[in-house]
Amino acid sequence: MREVVTLTINHTRVEVPAGTTVLVALLANGIMAVRRSVSGEPRGPLCGIGVCFECRVTINDRPHCQSCQVLCEDGMDVRTE
């Protein structure tokens, strides 16, 4: 397995250790408020285990992916709202 993977978060290239979830990559790069709620509040992860959907982001153009359940891959394109 490769040691690091490179992906883009909101158009910025970042490197993370292999095996890191997308959510951890976001947090480690200073994005604590991963999304906005229906009334516009900033929200961050709550459950960390794929239940609450507070961590959802767009991955490779697919919206509403739970970033805590997806591992980072080379060339992945991640966008937050």
Binding site: P17, G19, L23, V34, R43, P45, G48, C68
Partner: peptide, 18 residues
């Protein structure tokens, strides 16, 4: 609902994932 308020196991899960 503020960012940085998480589950106890929730924060642990994040740390477990790096």
């Amino acid at each position: 609902t503020l960012p940085n308020v998480m589950g106890a196991g929730g924060l642990q899960a994040l740390v477990k994932m790096g």
